[in-house]
Every structure is written in C-alpha cells, then in structure tokens.
Design a protein around this nucleic acid. Structure first.
Lengths: 346, 346
DNA sequence: CACCAGCATCGAAGCGCTTCGATCAGCACC
DNA sequence: GGTGCTGATCGAAGCGCTTCGATGCTGGTG
C-alpha cells in the first residue's frame, strides 16, 4: 500500500513527475522514467483506486448488467460475461456486476455515484426495461443485443440475417433445393429479438435463391426428455416435407436431439442430409458428427462492445446505431451435395 | 450528479451535518434530518464513490473470483455468482468480477489498489492457487468451498458429510438395508474436495447404521449420450448388487439418466426403489418423479460468506476456520419402505 | 549573444467526501 | 449564578491522486 509520495521520494523526483511518468501524459526523460519504474516495482506501488477516481474523473470500471434469471440458459450467458470481462481487462477496465434484482436501479446507482464510466447491457430483451434507463444515464451504455426500440442507443450484435443467408448459400451452392429450418421453441421468439431475425434471413435468402423451405419449431425447450421428443417430431415433419438439408437455430440440447433422430433413422451426415448450425454459442464441432456453423462468438461481440464503450468515453464518440458483426462460416464437413445430385461445376 | 455541498446548501446546514445525517454516525435533530432527506431526494443525491473510498477508507466493493473455466458446470456457478451478488447488495456492497485470466493477479491488484474491501473466492479447487495469494492479502478473503490446505483461512461450505448422513438415515429409517451410491465421474474427485466428503459421509453413516452399500461412479460426465449410457451401466450394476435405494451425488444430467434407467426397467419410485439426492444445486423437484434432496443451497452459502466478510471488516472479526452449513432434508416423496418390508413402528 | 522554442520537472490547487475537534445553546445541579 | 453536562452543529484538515500553470535548461537561430 505504498503511496505516490513514497515512490517520488524513492526515485528522487516530485509527485507530479511520478504521475506523469505513469500516465504517459507528458514527456519524461528516459533516465527519470527508469528510476521511477524501479521504485514502483520495488515498492509494489499501485495508485489508490479511490483517489484516482476522484482526481482523474475516470473509474476504470464498467458496470455489466446481466439479469441472470433462473430461466436463462447459463452456459451462453456465462460465456458473454466472461468475454466482456476479458475484453475490459485488455483496456485496464474492471467489471462491476449488476444482476436482475436491481437492473435499472443499479444502473442509475452506479451512474450517479460515479462508480462506473459506462455500462454494458447483456441478455437484451425486445422490450427491455433497461433501454429507458440507459437513455437517461449520464454515462454511456452499450447493448449487446438489439432491443426493439433502439433509437439513439449503441448496440452490438451478430448480423443474424446475414448468418442465415450464408448458411442458405452454402447449402444451395452444394445443390440443395429444399431446406428445413429447426428453430427455437415459440416462446423464444417473444423473449428475444434474434430468433425472428434468423428465420427472416433464412426465408429471404431461400426466396432469393429460389429454393423450397420448411419451417419447424419444437414445442418445448430445455433439456427434458419431452423436449427431445418434441425435436424428434419436428425433424420427422421436416423430412416428410422432402428437405435434404437442415439449418439449425436452437440450443445445444436440440442440436443433439436432431443428430440423434437422424442417426435413428439411419440417415448419414452429410451423405444423406446436410446440416448447418446458425448463431450457436456452443462448440458445434463437439457433436457427432461435427456440424458446420455460422456461430455467434461471444468474444467478438464483447470485444466490439467494450471497444465502443471506450470510444464513447473518448473525444470522438461513435454515432449511436446498431453495429453488426459480420458472420463467418465454419466448415466441419456436415454439408455435401444432396443424394442423387450430380456434382457439376457451374 | 449533485454534490454534498449542494445538499447542504439546500437544507441550510453544513456539509459535515449532511454527512453525519447520511451515515448516522452522530445524532442529528429530527427536523434537520428531514430537511436533509428532502434535499437528497430532490437533488437525487448520491455520494461520489471515489470520494467516499478516499475519505472513508471503505470501498463498499467485494471482489469475486470465479474462474469461469470452459469446463465448469455453468448453471451451478452462475447460481453462486448471483447469490453472492444478492447477498452483497443487502449490505450495500457491490461485486467486482475477477475471472480466471487473472485470478491471482487480480486479487493482488484490487487489494493493493484499494479497489475492494475483501474478496470472495468461488469454485475452490483442492490445491487452489488462490489460497497462497489470499494469505498475503491485506484485505480479508472468504472461500466458498474448502481447499485442502485451509489453514488460517475463512471458509464456508455445506456440511457434506452430514448431508450424506441425513440421506442415509432417512433411507435406513424407512427400512432399507442395502443402499447404492451414484457419484460423480472419477475426475471430479480430483478436481473438487466435496465429492469425496459426500462419499465418506455416506460410507461412515452406512457403517454406523450397519447397512450394506454399493458405490458406483459413472465413467463419463457431461451431457452426451455416452455419459447417459455410463450412468445406465452404473445403475444396472448397483441394482445387481441388490440395493433397494439410491443416494445420488451427481449432476442434473446424471439424475435424469438415473430416473430414465429406472423407468426403463419398470421400477417405480418409491414403491420399488427409493431415491435421495445429496448436494444438488439444481431443483430436484422438477424431475419425474420429483426426488428427495439434501441440497446445496447457493444462497445459504453465499449469505454466510458475505456475512463473514462483513464481520472480518468489523472491530470483532471472526476466527479463521471452516464454517459448515447444516444441511436440510427436502421431502418430495421419493422415499418409501423397500418392497416387501413390513412397516413397523420401532 | 540575445532570443525563443521545446523539453523536463516541480508546486499547488483541487476532486468530493469523512471525521476530528471545536463551539454553542440549553439545562440541571448545588 | 457558576459549573459541568449533553445534544446539535460547524469548520477545517486530510484521504492520494491528477493536472494546470509555472520554472529552469538546453540548444538552435539570426
């Protein structure tokens, strides 16, 4: 718990010189800097956080609001929290956790008490209550996810339409003319904004490419046996409609249920049926068989979110708006030409 | 962003009077207090966090280290993080998140920069690297979980031995004389300290009560089909050894696999076989059938941890040591007398 | 060689709060 | 009516840092 005063003394310079040496905001001679660095190391000096906040009008803290509701899918949310934390640390920022209990009140609290320089909003719902709060805040906010009313907000998200388009393109390019879609259970289309965007992107691109589609949504989510049966029924219905490929936009349990049902029917991937996963946060290469994916990468979203937050604190803040991340296709060998399709070049 | 100065002015008192009114550290007349409260509300005043830290030598922040490793079981960990946050807020404390990336370095950093008043250590491993760091810290640390070498540390945990004992007692009291144990996969017994404690408690109590035991550990964890098959095999082996009841200490997927296997064999719970879950963080009443449990309740652990942390900051800090939480039995109707057992009173 | 630019450094004024040590009025007591 | 309380309030001194505005030097320029 050495203080800047002691460092200055040890290095034989004034307090302000130490401060400038550490912040780099004024030029310091190489020799002086060396002596200061030595003293800092020797004394294990670290500026007092409170004093720094008070004098510097920067807290080096971002508040992170993540509802952590009981009904949320833990692994994905954990991945986003972790990714945000990692991204923040790269800029020497810490993360202060705000949970559901006081999502809105907490945002106000940290903003008006000057505890955080900005807030990162995770697990954004279409009609998120945090939107209104963010607009009134005197510190910047970045949303990871896009609420329905996002006017004036800074949002980050995967370009889900584009992700679905890419998936369709790959399948059509491989020769498929009828593609099925395994979506989330219906309630997810109310609670989140991206499932409809994926489906819309899927349908739009399929129409563009002039291929037939079949849409299926399991009735039940989660990991119970009934949920799996619901997926099996969905797959069955899709297959009856003659599709030769499936685009999956659902949770990991549903992915597993799909591959299971295909295996049970003796359908080989990709020889008999092709598979592409869209918007997954989990590792689709761990399935049997591994599945091609256009994934939602938490680290990519959170890196951009923190980057935007940093820029919002700078002299040249970015414009509000939705910042879409370009999706990337990951080939794992689950796509091939449909059965009986003559491979042609052009 | 009103300052205390403005509040004082609005209330017609001095700055120090406002401060004392808000902290309650000196007596203030009812009339003055009312005027101050009004001014605070009117101006939406909240003390500046940085200034408060600097002057008050309290940050009102606890650092929380939670590795959030890729291989960790997300829902349970999320529950502990959430529970800690809730408990901290009850004492007007915020949570600063420290992840795996810089578990040790982060602890040192927040301690020496005075960013946190204490640290809460989650997901404790037997040979946790954070143990050594905690011992050197100038701020208190509370471990939720018990590392092998916990000398001089303050630790909180469920009394797992006792939890297993209670489960055994319930089964023996119901008339069972041969009980099977479905544990975690073997690797969990190396990575965590509580699986062996549960098993030890189970075996000790069974010996005390003079009943026969059979221990089974699935070979594989996680949620894949192979893991489920491994559980099925374990159950099969246990049943062959003639047990009439099962104590479960494993993850939710394994619980589901057990009930599934029992159903497949046409065994009814509790008529044909009794079930008790020990140390689960998930809701065992959501299974089919619901399962009796001696659960590990995150909120209980975290409430105690925060309570201890608060007391470590007080004038009368508690002694180091392991603080065990008394387990409670939750009856969900999955225990009955074994088949063919004449119900006797005494 | 006087002059100015630019570099390296220093001193001091805050940042907004907490808290210590007065001060002062009112009151009881002998 | 002096003395000593107690209760309510105030003033001022920090807490440890950042940053503004000097100051003193060095060296190039005309």
């Amino acid at each position: 718990m050495a203080k800047i005063h002691e460092v200055a003394e040890a290095a034989g310079v004034s307090i302000s010189t130490v401060s400038y040496a550490l912040s780099g905001k004024r030029t310091i001679s190489a020799e002086t800097r060396r002596r200061i660095d030595d003293a800092v190391r020797e004394l294990d000096y670290r500026p007092n956080a409170g004093a720094r906040m008070l004098a510097g009008r920067r807290t080096n803290i971002f508040a992170l609001t993540e509802p952590f509701r009981a009904d949320t899918y833990a692994p994905a949310h954990m991945a986003f929290v972790l990714a945000t934390s990692i991204a923040a640390r790269r800029h020497d920022y810490d993360i202060l956790l705000l949970t559901d209990e006081e999502a809105s009140a907490g945002m106000r609290r940290v903003a008006t008490s000057g505890l955080a320089d900005g807030v990162i909003v995770l697990d954004v719902a279409p009609d998120d209550e945090r939107v209104a709060v963010a607009r009134l805040l005197k510190i910047p906010a970045v949303f990871v996810g896009v609420p329905t009313d996002h006017d004036g907000l800074v949002c980050v998200d995967l370009d889900f339409e584009q992700a679905a388009s890419i998936a369709v393109d790959h399948l059509v390019d491989a020769g498929h003319r009828a593609i099925g879609f395994v979506g989330h259970p219906a309630e997810a289309y109310l609670r989140s904004n991206f499932p409809p965007r994926v489906r819309a992107g899927f349908e739009a691109r399929a129409a563009d490419r002039d291929v037939r589609v079949a849409i299926g949504s399991p009735a039940i989510g989660g990991s119970s046996r009934r949920a799996a049966e619901s997926v099996h029924a969905t797959v069955a219905s899709l297959l009856e409609q003659g599709v030769t490929a499936l685009v999956l936009h659902c949770d990991d349990t549903a992915h597993a249920a799909v591959t299971e049902e295909l295996a049970r029917r003796g359908l080989r991937v990709p020889a008999d049926i092709s598979l592409v996963s869209v918007g997954a946060t989990f590792d689709t290469s761990a399935f049997h068989p591994p599945i091609d994916a256009v994934p939602l990468v938490p680290q990519a979203s959170c890196d951009l979110a923190i980057d935007l937050a940093m820029r919002l604190l700078s002299e040249a803040p970015p414009e509000p708006g939705v910042h879409l991340i370009a999706p990337e296709y990951r080939d794992r060998g689950s796509v091939a030409a449909p059965p009986g399709h003559a491979t042609t070049a052009g």
